[in-house]
Design a protein around this nucleic acid. Structure first.
Lengths: 212, 212
DNA sequence: GTTTGGGTAAAACGATCGTTTCATACGAAC
DNA sequence: GTTCGTATGAAACGATCGTTTTACCCAAAC
């Protein structure tokens, strides 16, 4: 932890610590100790603890959402109607594979899942703001791939897909216990393949029958 | 908050407070203030803060898991091979409808979802212990309803189903933003119907093609 | 009547938190 | 060489945390 500027060391250590113990569980003293940085440096560079957290979030979320849009652009430039599997993979894949940095993976797998489930906190609007552009683009893409569904049903199923993804990505131990060792949570490739298959299946489920 | 014994008032207030701000965010002083209980009473009745949290969890989880098994027993007594929809609803339904107590609903919708995503914490084994009996029973039921899938694939998809459920149940605001107001997160009936449909669709997705 | 023990009340304990203050070191601008 | 804004280090501040201690109330047991 002795490389990079002070600011970068704080960001990196904060990312790891927030991912490990969450926002409230993280301590600036523990953070500055592992980062080999003075305690006051956090407030100098980021204002306060929450400012640091927002900076940590943005550093990783921006590339993920950019990659999502890039892949969707690519799909739509190739075909007027991309397949559902392609759209799902463009949405889910970047969370698992944007960065080769293992620290980024740790962030996504632990912190992002935690954020998605956290109710309180003032950073959720800040988090959704970056996500909003992505949401609309993919809502349109999903609706096109699933013309039989109503917009409300598309929204519900995107919601469920997000949940399955967040849970699967955040998990590092439960799937092993659930499967009695059959499934390896670190096998990102299998995880992505199974997750995409599950989500596409759920999205393609027959629509609600209208009582006529 | 002026009814019931001291112990019950602590449990009820703790349930609400943990659901609102999480374990680390909850303060015993705020808890004892709203419960109109002395600070020391928490340690007298529950040992410490974590003991109180475990007691809060158990009070709500036990009925849910009991109801799950009861419904599964009922299904299997009626038919040798219950339909997938029935099994999914027996698994998901109790989380939304076991108790008519609105405080129990608040607990399930906020705290349980949070627990499912929380990585650290010592109560997860304690939580899984109660869940373990449920897990095996439903794993068998799902495997029977989906004979084409490998055990590993059944485990993966149960895992994803749990994630979609936890996310959907914990959410109270995001689906409204995601759907631009089309979907109402408080409409438990629609939520359950859409969720069951999504999960059954995901579980029924075509299996991984073996490269021969 | 006295004793006993479960339950509650008030107060303080030590620890640790996020934050602030103040002094200092360093490099660029003039 | 002096000045000045940026950055860091050391120390302390006030607040609040979970927990413990001590004393008190009161109904049941003897």
């Amino acid at each position: 932890m002795g490389e990079g500027s002070t600011r970068d060391r704080i960001l990196t250590a904060g990312e790891a610590l927030f991912a490990e113990v969450g926002f409230e569980g993280a301590t600036l003293r523990r953070l500055t100790t592992t980062a080999e940085v003075n305690l006051a440096a956090v407030h100098y560079h980021f204002g306060n603890k929450e400012g640091l957290f927002r900076a940590v979030l943005e550093r990783r979320l921006a590339p993920i959402n950019a990659e999502r849009l890039r892949r969707l652009d690519l799909l739509e430039s190739r075909s007027a109607s991309p397949s559902l599997e392609e759209v799902v993979e463009a949405f889910v894949g970047p969370m698992l594979s944007v960065q080769q940095d293992p620290r980024a993976v740790a962030f996504v797998r632990r912190l992002l899942g935690r954020i998605c489930t956290d109710q309180g906190g003032e950073w959720i609007p800040h988090f959704l703001a970056q996500f909003s552009g992505v949401k609309e683009r993919f809502a349109v893409a999903f609706q096109r791939a699933l013309p039989a569904l109503s917009p409300a049903e598309v929204a519900w199923r995107m919601h469920f897909s997000l949940g399955a993804t967040a849970h699967a990505i955040a998990d590092e131990t439960r799937i092993a216990a659930l499967s009695d060792g059959l499934c390896d949570p670190r096998d990102s490739e299998t995880l992505l393949a199974e997750l995409v298959r599950f989500i596409t299946g759920g999205l393609r489920a027959p629509q609600r029958e209208e009582r006529s």
